[in-house]
Computed example of a mutant assay.
Amino acid sequence: MTQSRRMLVLRAVVEDYIRSQEPVGSSAVAHNHDLGVSSATIRNDMAALEDEGYLTQPHTSAGRIPTEKGYRYFVDRLATIAPISEAQRRGINSFLSGSVSLEDTLHRAARLLAQITGQVAVVASPSLSKSTLRHVEIVPVSMSALLAVVITDTGRVAQHLLSMGVMPRTDELSRFCTRVNAVCDGQTLAQAARITRDMITDPQWQPMRQLAESLAGAFASMADDERTSELYMAGTSRLAHQRPLADLAPLFDALEEQVVLMKLMSALSEEVDENGVSVAIGSETHTPGLLHASVVTSGYGRIDTAAGEPDADGTAERPEGSEPVAFVGSIGPTHMDYATTMAAVRAVARYLTAFLAHDGPATHS
């Protein structure tokens, strides 16, 4: 009995169980898969796989189901994820390109991913702490206050009211604003705060000290404000129709803990494999409510124009080593269709990356 054949049996059991959600017997494996050995040989292999912790036998059924270890082996051997179909790619582009804003795009992305996978989809908005400054506009709104409108590379717009003891002249304000945009463009908000504060060491900006310090404070508070990452979720009702509610109670409790979910999926999105996705199965999530669930996640983020050409999925791939600004993911039972879910998560993540790179809805043909 060879180890390689035994693992082919394991793969067959996982595939059949994902498809049927019924314990898999040796005769079914022999019938459904051309392994070139008898049902009795397969039965012996399955017994060995059970001894090694890859399979388990529920109740007294003759069939077996994969364990967490079995699923992990199966997922790790999905060396390459087949691209989504041409029809699916067109469907993604058509559905998401109809959006009118970043928020609308993220909401649509969650709904679409839930529809493709039949599972819970979670999409996070870009975190301001990971965004870079694109433009700031400062306008008077009263005799003693200015409004700073800050636009980031991820399309987020934030407004900050700056109280002023002495209002700067219009020409001074315009010159200061031009300078801030020149030296802070492309910098993170934390870096923009430091650069703006450093400006007042230059004698020409001394009269603008109060404005510089107030604006730097606004940049710093945005950089620290992780609450600006919102979660867009879809598919919970669809999942509820597939399984008894009692089985899903821990999962729904976990979905309510959005801060925990955010940390888990954000961390996973920064540890993607060569396929651009990360998978945590059961106890690997370190989340009690997800002990019988799996999480598939990918990060999306900024890309260079040169690296942003559409790939086989019709979307731009985030370059290796670049930091994701947010994540997209799918949560479902451990017997989920991993190949389909991983491909869908990756495709939506790449679309969102292209969306950010092109300042709006992508129109890849």
Rank of each mutant, 00 (worst) to 15 (best):
I92T: 07
T117P: 01
F252I: 03
L251R: 04
F355I: 10
L162N: 02
E230C: 13
G155M: 06
V183A: 01
R318D: 07
L356D: 11
K69T: 04
D76P: 04
A158E: 15
E309N: 13
S237V: 14
V325L: 04
Q57G: 04
E50P: 04
L78Y: 04
S26N: 07
D337S: 05
T60C: 12
E86H: 08
H160C: 11
Y54V: 00
L290G: 02
E323P: 11
S266E: 11
I195A: 08
A114S: 12
E50K: 11
F327L: 05
G289M: 05
H358K: 08
Q210P: 09
T80S: 15
T117W: 11
Q57C: 07
F355N: 06
Q3G: 10
N93H: 09
G53A: 02
L261F: 02
R72G: 03
A220Q: 14
P23T: 01
A182G: 03
M7R: 08
L245T: 11
V139K: 02
V295I: 06
Q191E: 06
Q187H: 13
R350D: 15
Q119D: 15
G98V: 06
E274K: 11
D16E: 14
D224I: 07
V122E: 09
Q57K: 15
T41H: 08
E103R: 09
S237M: 14
L112M: 12
P23H: 05
T56S: 10
T196A: 00
D304F: 13
T105Q: 08
Q206K: 07
R302Y: 05
T60E: 08
I195Q: 06
H33V: 05
V150N: 00
D45A: 01
V9Y: 07
A193T: 03
A223L: 07
Y351F: 11
H31M: 13
A182E: 09
E271Q: 15
P324R: 02
I116P: 00
A307T: 14
H241N: 14
S61E: 06
E213Q: 12
L133R: 01
H286Q: 13
V279K: 02
K69Q: 10
L8I: 05
M208L: 04
M222I: 12
L255V: 03
F327Q: 09
A47E: 05
P207T: 00
A110I: 12
M1E: 07
L255W: 04
H335V: 05
A40E: 13
E137M: 11
H286I: 08
L161N: 03
L291D: 14
L113V: 06
R227P: 01
T236G: 05
T201V: 10
L211G: 01
T132E: 07
A234T: 10
Q88V: 14
E270R: 15
R194C: 12
P66W: 00
A182Q: 09
P140L: 00
Y351S: 01
A267G: 14
A218I: 02
R346I: 08
E317P: 05
I65L: 05
M265H: 06
T170N: 06
I303L: 15
G36H: 04
K130A: 15
T341G: 01
I151Y: 10
H358L: 15
P126C: 12
M199W: 00
I331F: 05
G155P: 03
V166K: 00
L251F: 09
V136M: 01
E226N: 12
